[in-house]
Amino acid sequence: PPQTPIRAAMTSIQQLRGDLISTGDQPSTNLATYFKNCTVDPTQDVVKRLETLGQTFSQRFGQAVGPRCVILGKQRFTLGVRLYYKVMEAMLESEEKRLSVQNFSKLLNDSTFHTSLLACALEVVMATYGGSSFKAGGYSHGGGGGDTAETDVCFPWILDVFSLAAFDFYKVIESFIKADPTLSKDIVKHLETCENLIMERIAWRTGSPLFELLKQEHEGGAAEQVETPAS
């Protein structure tokens, strides 16, 4: 049968759910071992953070889409958590191979890392359900939005929900794509569009941590860099 937007969306949703069916709502044995190998075991903080962010997410999803859809928000959050654990494990395996270390205590106790990774997983889930549209309000990229309630929860909505700096979200995108080779072409394209939006606009808004980093880089680098203006 000919491919229609509805059929394509249904296929993507089925594929995502299928990929995550074997992934539990808890860290796998392998991921739990990475947690245990840390100087400071992050397990409790990870669980607590997911509880807090889960409540915030469901509440805000209900506000955006409608109070009757709170259950849908919870289902999407559950899928997002599964993807978060799956990708985290793959990232750590890849880092273990690259760095030959098994103790990722600093990274796994970094709240911003976890929030960014979870936000990226949820963005993938939301984009799979809602299609690759972007929130209205001046963004020229994306598939033109549409007028369904789904557009209210499209990027960069998740950044606002988790009070996450776009610059921190940006950091996980590439590693996320590398760590999950099962992501569809459309989802990769969606994440790439998020990346472009951040790079071109969102990261440059007032209050972005990027300005402080640039300042530090400029101050710290001035003595080291002796390149001429021409180079």
């Binding site: 990232m91 890849s94 880092e95 690259r98 760095l99 990722f104 600093k106 990274l107 970094d110 911003t112 890392f113 950091k171 996980v172 590439e174 590693s175 794509i177 590398k178 080779p181 992501l183 072409k185 990769v188 394209k189 994440l191 790439e192």
Partner: peptide
């Protein structure tokens, strides 16, 4: 597969991006 351009070098990963190698 997809056309995503990977910009990170082989010696860079998520640990460096969050300043904890």
């Amino acid at each position: 597969s997809h056309d995503y351009h990977f910009g990170l070098e082989d010696h860079e990963g998520i640990s460096e991006l969050f300043d904890c190698d």
